[in-house]
Write a protein that binds this DNA or RNA. Structure first.
Lengths: 151, 151
DNA sequence: ATACTTGCAAATGATTTGCCAGTGT
DNA sequence: ACACTGGCAAATCATTTGCAAGTAT
């Protein structure tokens, strides 16, 4: 399978889109693979590998789920982010890259348009020299709701 | 042992400072505990539990190192941050809380004055409603040096 | 003497890997 | 047919927990 440059805007609409990409890369759309992709389409928010396994009724082995997520990520179809201490969560690449915010209290994962963080990125560059990336290791903190009820 | 409110400015100068805090909280400054504290004083940058074990020549069990780091963190003497996929790194609380930046390429962990990120925090609040915290889950990205050589 | 601590072994949780049988194309 | 994949068991990595023996105070 070939790899896609990270950041490539890639949009998948349905399982067939994914099937095309997989085959084009020399891969096969097996039952397990299709099931994982369907689970991802069914989920509104990013989900963990374990949640995918559960959603599939345990019919697909965790190892296969991980391997498929890995391959799909190489194809640019899937992206994952790290949420606090917990398991990584995976989601379909719907269009351009997204940045994320994670609530350390309630665990919520919120997407945000990278453009909205441009000023933030600029300021961080200025004060630290670092070029920040919030797509893989997101911004952690307290969401609006949790920020209210105590710290 | 009693706990300290998170964020309390606490400054430890030497092992004796820590010993006082530990005893004051009903704890004991055992050989293993003292060794872990000394290893932390000896390290310039935050270190992983495994690095502490190694630095101590394997004379202290990993479980004890973890337990000590946990207790010392409860006392406000130690803080830890999560670096990429790797193990957490621990450091002594030298004065006020610090924020961190991690380079995803070279692994470097840089401290930064929280005040320097005030504008950043403000902007994030504005665009997302989140109250960010970079002390536990730091900002990830590319440090100045790594940002130069390709992406 | 008391109860906080330690080392050691075993358990966890998340993810990876080896291997061989199974199956898309 | 061919080699990409799947399931299953076992291995890894970081960290935690159970427990009986050890030791600061």
């Amino acid at each position: 399978m070939t790899v896609v440059r990270r950041g490539d805007p890639l949009d998948v609409r349905d399982v067939e889109d994914v099937a095309d990409l997989v085959r084009k890369a020399g891969g096969r759309l097996t039952g397990a693979r299709r099931a994982v992709v369907e689970a991802l389409f069914a989920a509104k928010d990013p989900v963990s590998a374990e949640e995918i396994v559960d959603a599939l009724g345990g019919n697909v082995d965790p190892a296969s789920v991980y391997r498929n997520l890995e391959r799909l990520e190489e194809l640019g179809v899937v992206r994952h982010v790290h949420v606090g201490h917990g398991a990584g969560v995976y989601g379909l690449a719907r269009g351009r890259e997204r940045d994320y915010l994670v609530c350390e209290r309630c665990g919520r994962v919120s997407e945000i348009e990278p453009t909205k963080l441009e000023q933030v990125r600029e300021d961080i560059r200025k004060v630290s020299g670092y070029e920040p990336r919030f797509s893989h290791f997101p911004i952690h903190g307290l969401c609006r709701r949790c920020a209210r009820g105590g710290t």
